[in-house]
Amino acid sequence: GEEMDTAEIARQVKEQLIKHNIGQRIFGHYVLGLSQGSVSEILARPKPWNKLTVRGKEPFHKMKQFLSDEQNILALRSIQGR
């Protein structure tokens, strides 16, 4: 696969979550399948791509996919709003 700019992906995700008022817990649960603790760690201190294991890269693939389609963001927003 291609190398990803993990810091940039994390920054964009944080931006979207704040902009749409989506909590990290909801994002972690529905998008990444991770706990809030793992999510906040990944978003606060993303490791460089070449330092990640295959498993460590997974959340970034999912985040990139999440960012690529605004429908994903809107869907999360409606879950959050319940």
Results as ranks from 00 to 15, higher is better:
G1A: 11
G1Y: 15
G1K: 12
E2Q: 09
E2F: 09
E2V: 08
E3P: 08
E3D: 13
M4Y: 07
M4E: 07
M4T: 07
M4S: 05
M4R: 03
M4N: 05
D5P: 06
D5I: 02
T6C: 02
T6G: 00
T6E: 00
T6N: 03
T6S: 04
T6W: 01
A7K: 13
A7D: 08
A7M: 09
A7H: 13
A7L: 10
A7S: 10
E8W: 07
E8Q: 09
I9Y: 04
I9A: 02
I9F: 03
I9L: 09
I9G: 03
A10S: 08
R11Q: 06
R11S: 09
R11T: 08
Q12L: 07
Q12E: 03
V13W: 02
V13S: 03
V13K: 03
V13Q: 03
V13P: 03
K14D: 05
E15A: 12
E15C: 15
E15T: 08
E15L: 12
L17C: 04
I18C: 13
I18D: 14
K19E: 06
K19H: 14
K19R: 09
H20G: 03
H20T: 03
H20W: 10
H20S: 04
H20P: 02
H20M: 05
H20R: 04
H20A: 05
N21V: 03
N21Y: 04
N21K: 11
I22T: 02
I22Y: 00
G23W: 06
G23H: 13
G23L: 10
Q24W: 14
Q24V: 14
Q24F: 10
Q24A: 09
Q24P: 10
Q24E: 14
R25S: 15
R25H: 14
R25E: 15
R25Y: 13
F27L: 04
F27V: 01
F27T: 00
G28L: 05
G28S: 11
G28F: 05
G28W: 02
G28A: 13
G28T: 04
H29D: 12
H29N: 12
H29C: 09
H29S: 10
H29I: 08
Y30C: 11
Y30S: 07
Y30H: 13
Y30L: 09
V31I: 11
L32W: 01
L32E: 01
G33L: 01
G33R: 05
G33M: 03
L34N: 05
S35I: 05
S35C: 10
Q36N: 11
Q36G: 12
G37P: 10
G37Q: 15
G37T: 15
G37M: 13
G37A: 14
S38N: 12
V39D: 02
V39H: 01
V39N: 02
S40K: 14
S40L: 09
E41L: 05
E41G: 05
E41H: 05
E41N: 07
E41W: 03
E41K: 02
I42P: 01
I42H: 04
I42Q: 03
I42W: 03
I42G: 01
L43E: 01
L43D: 02
L43M: 06
L43H: 00
L43Q: 01
A44S: 14
A44H: 12
R45M: 11
R45L: 06
R45F: 13
P46I: 06
P46A: 05
K47F: 05
K47Q: 14
K47H: 06
P48E: 09
P48Y: 01
P48V: 05
W49V: 03
W49A: 07
N50M: 07
K51N: 13
K51L: 13
K51Y: 07
L52S: 00
L52A: 00
T53L: 04
T53V: 02
T53M: 04
T53Y: 01
V54E: 15
V54I: 13
V54F: 10
V54Q: 15
V54R: 12
R55L: 11
R55V: 11
R55T: 13
R55H: 15
R55D: 14
G56P: 02
G56M: 08
K57A: 07
K57S: 05
K57W: 03
E58P: 01
P59V: 15
F60C: 02
F60L: 02
F60D: 01
H61S: 08
H61K: 13
H61P: 02
H61W: 12
H61I: 15
K62H: 05
K62N: 03
K62S: 04
M63D: 00
M63L: 04
M63T: 01
M63H: 00
M63R: 00
M63E: 01
K64Y: 09
K64F: 08
K64D: 04
K64C: 06
K64E: 08
Q65P: 00
Q65I: 10
Q65Y: 08
Q65L: 10
F66Q: 01
F66W: 15
F66S: 01
F66R: 00
L67R: 00
L67N: 03
S68F: 07
D69S: 11
D69F: 06
E70W: 07
E70M: 08
E70R: 11
E70A: 12
Q71Y: 06
N72F: 08
N72A: 14
N72T: 09
I73V: 14
I73Q: 05
I73S: 13
I73W: 14
I73L: 11
I73M: 11
L74N: 11
L74V: 13
L74D: 12
A75R: 14
A75D: 15
A75K: 15
A75F: 11
A75W: 13
R77F: 04
S78L: 09
S78H: 11
I79A: 11
I79D: 06
I79E: 11
Q80N: 12
Q80I: 10
Q80A: 14
Q80Y: 07
G81V: 14
G81L: 10
R82V: 14
R82K: 15
